[in-house]
Amino acid sequence: MRSGVVIFPGSNCDRDMIVAIRKITGKTPIKIWYKEYDIPNLDLIVIPGGFTFGDYLRCGALAARSPVITSIKNHISRGGTVLGVCNGFQILIEAKILPGSLIRNKKLLFTCRETTLEVQSCIENPFLSGLKIGECLKIPVAHNEGNYFAPEDLLKQLKEEGRIALKYIKQNVNEKNYNPNGSTEDIAGILSKNGKVLGMMPHPERAINCLHGGTDGLKFLTNCVEQIIG
């Protein structure tokens, strides 16, 4: 599988994502610098987490106006697959590739901990199709602006189109803080209209080794790779 990881000034999860993909595919993804207009044909482009451009103006706002975004949009219009994690999700939203907005966490705290995600029933996509609906994945989050906000009409549209991919879920009935950021309807990740672009706040690349405390991220990414290569 040919894959690439986009690097902006301030990206900081690019190396972890490269390690994760290499562990699964045996091939090292190419690094794509944010100033690049021409990127080769790839099966998967990942926009990793970080604090691109210092999170100035709004998280992901400046990165979303970089040259590489034009190339990513071209890749998407050719039917290409894109995964955006954390700041990568914020960039996809700022670039208007995914709809809605990611605002400050409800409790105004940077939250860095494990969350439990539930795979939702959604349109066909290369990220979750190999997993069961309702399956739970334990994947950590680390962000300050991950509170997904969508106006009511957009939320309705996302539901109707089956684009809500992942939600934070309680592990037991009494758990109160299962949603780390106060996102609307516990949304953790959404898909593009064609299902080929996924933006998610949790970091799968941070759960690929028992020493990380879990390997559900590896399971998630392995499934993506298997779905993409078919």
Partner: peptide, 9 residues
């Protein structure tokens, strides 16, 4: 419209 404001919110 292009950069300074996120008109969704």
């Amino acid at each position: 419209e292009v950069l300074l404001v996120n008109t969704v919110i």
